[in-house]
Each structure stands twice: as C-alpha cells, then as structure tokens.
Design a protein around this nucleic acid. Sequence first.
DNA 1: CGTATCATTGACGTCGGTCAATTCGTGTGG
DNA 2: CCACACGAATTGACCGACGTCAATGATACG
Lengths: 235, 235
Amino acid sequence: MTAGHRLRCLACKARHVGLCQPLGGGELDVVARFKNGDRRLAAGEHLYHEGDVVNEVYNLTGGWVLLYHLLDDGRRQILEILLPGAFFGLQPDANQPMSHSAVCATAAEICVFRRRDIMNLFLERADLAVRTIALCARERIAIHDHLTSLGRRTARERIVHLLVEIDHRLRAIQPGAPAIVPLTQAQIGDVTGLSEVHVNRILQDLRAEGAVEISRGMLQILRPDKLTEFEGVVA
Amino acid sequence: MTAGHRLRCLACKARHVGLCQPLGGGELDVVARFKNGDRRLAAGEHLYHEGDVVNEVYNLTGGWVLLYHLLDDGRRQILEILLPGAFFGLQPDANQPMSHSAVCATAAEICVFRRRDIMNLFLERADLAVRTIALCARERIAIHDHLTSLGRRTARERIVHLLVEIDHRLRAIQPGAPAIVPLTQAQIGDVTGLSEVHVNRILQDLRAEGAVEISRGMLQILRPDKLTEFEGVVA
DNA sequence: CGTATCATTGACGTCGGTCAATTCGTGTGG
DNA sequence: CCACACGAATTGACCGACGTCAATGATACG
C-alpha cells in the first residue's frame, strides 16, 4: 500500500500547501507511510456528523468542504470553509465526539489518516508537528477574522469581506483561474450569520455594481478590486 | 536562571492546566530550561498590540487576558477570553506582525518564552508539540462556539451562553470559588457583538431573575443552573 | 412533465443600535 | 472631610438594519 500511496502523494494537487508543503519529493514517503487511504465524496455528502466519534484525520486534496454546527432548533452556523490543502479533524482528545459536522460543498477528494498514525507521525517527525501548529495558528487567524465579521460588521461588509477572502485563497491555490464560489445563497447566509433573503438583496446590489456574477448555486467574483474598494477603510 | 525558573514552575498556579499539565514534577525542568522569564502586568496594560512583531510566546499563569481586534473606525471585537493555563502568542510564521492585541482585564502573571526556544522545545520533546496541537484543537472548539453565538444566537442567548461557559471554565480552574467575572458591560458587549446599552438591559433582566449579581466593573454568577435552564433547548 | 432546489421580490415586524441625559461609585486633591 | 472628576452603569426615546413570511419565478433533474 505504501508504494501506491507514495505515487498518489507525488501526484497530489495539494502537495504544495498545508501539511505536506515543507516536504521534498523524497520525504513524501514519510507521510505516505502513515497514510490510510483516499476518499471521494459527492457534493452534499457528509464526511462526518456532529456527535460522531471519528478516529481519522483528514487532508483535503480537492473540492470544498464546509464545517458547520447546528443549534437544535435548526439554526445553522457554518464555521469554516475548507479548500484544498486544509488539514482537519484533529480533536483535543481521542474518542471525543466531533463538535461539528463536515459536508462537501462540491465533489471532494480527501486523504485519510488514522488518528493514532498521525500522532505517531508527529512523534517521529517533530517538525511536522511544528508545521501543524503553524497551520493551526494560521487557521485561528482566519477564524478570528470570521468572528470579527459576525460580531462587528454590517451585512454588506460581511459578504464583501467573505468574497475578498475567498478570492485571495483561491488565487493562492490556483492562480489565474476564475474565482468561482460554489455556494448557494443560503450557505453564504449560514457563513455570514444572515438570512438567505438578505444575502440575496445584497448580492443583487453587488451584481448591479458589476462586482459579481450570479448563477444557480454558484457565484463568480468578477472584480475583486471593486470589492476591496467597497471594504473601504474597514480593515 | 534555570534553577530559579524551576522553583517558580513548581509553585506555578497554572501547572496542572495547559501546556505543563502532562509534565510530572521532575519533568518541569524541561520547560523551565527553555523559559525566559515572568511578567506581571496591571489591569488595562497591554501585553502586545496588533501589528507588533512579537518574538515571544506566553503561558498565562494568573489573571484574565483579552485578545481583541479593532476595525479602523473603532469597532472592537474581543476574540478570546484567556484564563490561567492559556498558552498563546503562537503565530503561523516568525516575524509576522500580530493579528490582534492582548490586554489584561485584571492584574496578570505571564510566563514568557522566546519563540525560538519554544520551537526547539517542541523539536526536542515532540510530545509537548502534540500536547500543543491538542490545546489548539480545544481552543478551536471554543472559538467555533463563540462564532455560533455571534452568527446565530439572540442577544440574550449570547450573554447567557457566555456566562455559562465562563462559569464552567472557572469551576475547572478553581472549584468552589465564587464565579466572578471581572469584565465591564462594554467589554461583555465587545465579546458578544452587542452594544453596551443592550448588554445592560439584558443583565438587568438576569439580575431581576436572580441569576447574577451586578457590581461596578464586575459581575457575579449566582445561579449557573438558572442560566443553563434559560439556555433551554438551544445547544 | 413533475418535482425539488434555488433565487427573487414585496410587505411588514422587531431586535437591537444610537443618541443623549442622568445616576452612581470610586478615587483624588485640596 | 468635602468638592470634583471620571469611568461605569442606567434609562428612555427613537429608528433602521435585517429577519420573517409568503408568493412567484427559474432551472435542473429524473
């Protein structure tokens, strides 16, 4: 299996971001050796649900995954939008039920590790543990920013800010490609803490201003510069 | 210096939580050896400001510290409330300016490490790196919860939920002590994304219901059970 | 075609913000 | 010991951003 994994690792589209970024081609073996397999999911499928006990850790290599939390009256908050290179599923303690659900927004490819294997990998290669700590720190900054949006920005600011952030992230992964956001307006509402209706009203404005293009279940960022300008002085 | 640090580590009030929790008394040397010193700050003093380049990492051993972010029109969002045992200040990359500010809500004692030393500590003791990853994961869950509050809970739910969470955390650190929250109403507003005025209105209600006691710049949780009950079905 | 999902639009209501005044508590200097 | 200053808390009046409800349209998919 390891040999097979190594070949896939070499071809991995997310090899140069996230966990494996610091590894040279020769070093991929180290990770490949601990890897447990790949998984392919269709849009709308769940990787795990809140409350599940999951003994795996994941590296997203293709597609978009959403982490969300449900209140028991059905209100939903999308916590993170994961793009290729995201390393996720780590829990503070083994056997602890997941605090959130993970669902695919698009078809997705996911590289799977057993939690125990990853822990052993970290113990063997402390540099990868340090790398993971850095990834956690980066992730934390992104979440802090999200938090600031929900707490202190207006509806329009939240949406513009989200689109700018996604645009940046997409550019970092696939420079040159058109920035297409495969999220429904309801999902954008669940990210930004707004109602689907209000999201629509604001997207209409942005479209009228020429900043975005709207189609069914998808959204294209045409003029990120224009969006940034809208953000104005609001850092 | 190391010997001195070791003595202080042995007496540290936060020895049994956070980073040092898994260390036996004999192992404290490992951390003490890498430690750089202690710092004492008064309420209202800053440990660092957004934009600073900080080459230190911190372990909060006494007091309350608030991490916050400012928008440039002055809106403020408090991102995290740190209690003793918090290990913070890690950045994704060295020499990267801090993305937020850290201010003391009370007098505070802080154990200081140089970033480089901590990295070396992690490389030498991978188990501590793994421990740190677990702390990050725990922290992430707390932030996710905060995020959910800001995005999807009503004002009253946010405040009740915050108080319940703080009550739990205080209980874990100092069981039996009265749950006193040394935050002004304006600060509570900056945590919950509400205005000072609205926070006051809701705290008045909670006081009338006998759940909390209000004094100047401080708030006591009298009946956490009552608060939990208010949370009702809203997980 | 029939059905389901997503987007769109208007009418209306309300939660929580803003503004502004007042009170309270504590510390300070005279 | 008292007058004052200042930060925090309190209160009321008003308003507007955003939610809710409900109907309709558009598109994909089986």
